[in-house]
Design a protein around this nucleic acid. Structure first.
Lengths: 261, 261
DNA sequence: GCGATCAGCGGCACG
DNA sequence: CGTGCCGTTGATCGC
C-alpha cells in the first residue's frame, strides 16, 4: 500500500525526469472526447510513458480500456474532499480529449528509466510480399510485365500495376491474410478507375492466402481473378512458395441468377 | 535491481495465483507467428495478465511492440549459459505463435492481484448513433420511413434500410467519423445489392460528420447522397444535433467527364 | 465457429 | 497537413 502523497510524488518524478510511471490501485475512470465513457470502481494498472502515452489496463484483455496517445498533457492532484488521487491526461490533437483516473487506494506507484534505442525489425509485411511478388510476376502467369509498385491513383493506391502478354493492364492487389468483401471491393474500385482512365480493358487479380466464399463469389461476378498466395516467413525475409489460380466450380454458383441448364 | 531468480519467482507466482505480473528490464525480444520480428537489447516493460495477455512495451508509443492476446500459454526459465531469464508466450489459436523475451537484467518484478468486476460504459458508438437516427429519419427528409436496422444482406450489413415518400428503398450508412473512400465503396456495394435483389430503384445516403473531398466526388458520381451529421455526445447517450444535405457545387467537378455545357 | 464490420481504432508513408 | 490503408490489427455481434 502506498499513500496518495507518495503516489503523487512518484508520478510527478516520472513527469519531470521523463520516466515511465506505473500505478496500480482502486480507481474510477472517466473519459470524454471523440466518445465518452465511464468505468466504476475497481483495480487497474495505469501506465504513463514519457511521450505522454496514457494507458489504463484492466486485469484482462489486450487493449487498454482507456487510453491516450503520445502528446497528451498529464497532471496529478489530490482531491482532499474525496481523499483521492486524480491523474488526468488531456490532449487537443484530433479533438479536446481528457481522461481522469481517480484513485481511492494505491497499491503500487513508482517510476522507471528505460534506456532503449532499438527499433523493431518486422518481417512478413504486405509491402514485403508485394516487393517479392513484383520480382516474380511469372508465378502468376508467363508474360506478365511489372509496370509500377505502389501506384497512387485518385481512388487509392494500387499494390502492383502490370501488363500481360496481350498488353492488357493488370491491377494486382496483395493481401497477407484472408481476403474479404472489403478487399474485393477495393480491387474492383481500382480496376474501374484504371480502365476508365486509360480507356483500356483492365484485369484485376487478387493474391491472398485465402479468400472468404462470399468474397470469391463477388470477385468472380465482377470478372476478377483470384490466385492463392502461398508464402513463408523466414526471419530475414519472407519467401513466396507458390501461386495458384483458383476458380469456383460452376456448380458452386448455387445462387446464381441463371439456372444451370 | 532484482535477481533473475527472484524475477522468475514473481512471474511464477503471478501465473499460479492468477495475478498481474510486471517486469522491467534489459531484454531482447523475438517473435514468430503470422509475421516475425526481432528487437535488440534495451529496457522494456513486460505486462502479463491472468488471461494470458502478454505485452512488451517500449518507452514510447501507445501500442505494445510485441504482444499476444488472451489465451496464450506463458512459461519462464533461466538460461544458465547466457545467464538470462527467458519469458515465453505461446498460443495456437489463429496459428502457432510465440514470443520470447530474454532478460539480461531485471530492474523490477512483481505480481499484483487486481479485483475488478466493472465493465466500461461507452457512449457515442456508431450503433448508438444509428439507433438515434432510426427514430429521427425525418431529419434527413420528411416522409422517410424506417424499415429495418442492422439488416444483413449477402454483401454485408446495412445500417438502416428505409423507404421514401415515393416508395423508393433507401440504404443509409452511418459513420461516427469522417467518411473516406472505403465508406463510399461500402455504401455503393449495399445499394447495388439491394437494387438488384429487390429490382427497385434504390437510393443510398451517407450520414457522417465530414467526408473527404475524394470520397464526396466518388459518392456523387455514383449517384449517392451525403448528409452532414452533427451530433453531440452527452454522457448518458449521444444526441443528434442536426442533419444537413451537402452537395458539391457544379464548378467543383473540375475533372468531370461531361463539360458543363 | 465463421464472417463481416467497427474501433475513441493507431500508425505509416506519400502527396 | 491531409488522405488512404495496413495491422501479428483486436473486439464485437449476428448468422
Amino acid at each position: 500500500m502506498v499513500s496518495l502523497e507518495e503516489a503523487k510524488k512518484a508520478v510527478g518524478e516520472a513527469l519531470n525526469c521523463g520516466r515511465l510511471a506505473l500505478l496500480i490501485g482502486r480507481c474510477r475512470v472517466f473519459y470524454e472526447g471523440r466518445a465518452a465513457s465511464k468505468l466504476s470502481e475497481g483495480d487497474r494498472l495505469l501506465v504513463i510513458k514519457q511521450d505522454g502515452t496514457f494507458l489504463v489496463h484492466q486485469a484482462t484483455k489486450m487493449h487498454a480500456i482507456n487510453y491516450q496517445g503520445p502528446g497528451s498533457r498529464i497532471s496529478v492532484r489530490i482531491d482532499e474532499g474525496e481523499n483521492a488521487l486524480v491523474v488526468s491526461s488531456q490532449r487537443t490533437k484530433p479533438l479536446l480529449e481528457r481522461i481522469d483516473v481517480k484513485f481511492f487506494e494505491v497499491h503500487f506507484a513508482d517510476s522507471f528509466h528505460l534506456r532503449d534505442d532499438e527499433k523493431l525489425k518486422l518481417f512478413g509485411s504486405e509491402r514485403e510480399l508485394s516487393e517479392l511478388l513484383m520480382q516474380d510476376l511469372h508465378l502468376i502467369e508467363p508474360g506478365l510485365f511489372p509496370l509500377k509498385q505502389e501506384s497512387d491513383i485518385r481512388k487509392g493506391t494500387i499494390d502492383i500495376l502490370a501488363e500481360d502478354f496481350r498488353h492488357r493492364l493488370v491491377v494486382i492487389e496483395v493481401k497477407r491474410r484472408e481476403a474479404g468483401l472489403d478487399a474485393v471491393t477495393q480491387l474492383a474500385r481500382y480496376v474501374d478507375e484504371v480502365s476508365k482512365r486509360k480507356d483500356k480493358a483492365t484485369r484485376g487479380i487478387m493474391c491472398a492466402p485465402t479468400i472468404t466464399p462470399n468474397a470469391l463469389r463477388m470477385l468472380e461476378r465482377e470478372g476478377l481473378e483470384y490466385f492463392r498466395l502461398d508464402y513463408e516467413i523466414g526471419n530475414p525475409s519472407a519467401r513466396i512458395r507458390g501461386l495458384e489460380k483458383k476458380q469456383k466450380a460452376l456448380h458452386e454458383f448455387n445462387d446464381s441468377k441463371e439456372p444451370n441448364t
